[in-house]
Design a protein around this nucleic acid. Structure first.
Lengths: 129, 129
DNA sequence: CTTGAGCTTCTAGTCACTGGAACCTCCACA
DNA sequence: TGTGGAGGTTCCAGTGACTAGAAGCTCAAG
């Protein structure tokens, strides 16, 4: 199967699929004309990658998860550890964003936002309390 | 004032300060020996940038905010608009992360995480329901 | 006069793609 | 048989906001 159809079926842009081959996440065969030739298992892998990326896993995490997926003697604890590490990162990011949000929304509230130049947002950024 | 002291006083790494000069966010003078020579106003700007970046504003937003800061005839509505745009982005990111978090934590809960290979996380990623 | 800290510039790497150029291949239709 | 266009190929460069590291210059203290 050619890359266009694989792109449709996996939901990933062709560029991304080529990139994933570049970094050896998938290894499609080649036809006589030089075109990539994807097997069902490649499409399956790509869809796996799409879902893992949608959950925010890094490419390196994806690589590990794919390896675990293909290792039938894996221990589920290994998978869980990767997922938990990622969950922690997500929690950290959420906490950071919430803290930014908090500060920012307070500043926005106190800014009258009209034609006058006086602005508590700039005041705060400039270090004035 | 040399970059080292400015780094300490502004809280920004020297590398970052040089980068900010590269992209013309600050324009320190130069001493006869070629060293950057920072005025108080440069330090002030850098501290401003540090705070704006800590609130998650992009470099381009920071550039706009700095310009507004220096434009004494600005309208506070302009500042507020930038801040509100950024707040919306933050909210979007938080929503996305929360949705990831939701899915991921549910998967983690159902994974027993022991020596057995059976794993609902991988099952889900592989498209099995 | 040496040593070491601190400064300079420059290049390249990060992450995960994405855009674009130049070129090749295939298939349908005239 | 020619042609046009869709779809494939590779390679290079850019994104954002730094960061690491190398090679070399300057300065102050001992």
């Amino acid at each position: 199967m050619n890359i266009g159809e694989v792109s449709e079926r996996s939901g990933l842009p062709a560029k991304t699929i080529r990139y994933y081959e570049d970094i050896a996440l998938v290894r499609p065969l080649r036809s006589a004309n030089g075109y990539r030739s994807f097997r069902e298992s490649d499409i399956h892998k790509l869809a796996f990658l799409g879902r893992a990326r949608a959950l925010g896993f890094s490419i390196e995490d994806c690589r590990i998860l794919l390896d675990l997926y293909e290792d039938k003697s894996r221990e589920s604890a290994q998978v869980k550890a990767v997922a938990e590490g990622h969950l922690t990162e997500i929690d950290n990011k959420i906490a950071q964003l919430k803290s930014m949000r908090e500060t920012l929304s307070q500043l926005i509230e106190t800014c009258h936002g009209d034609h006058r130049p006086d602005c508590p947002i700039l005041k705060d950024l400039s270090g004035n309390t």
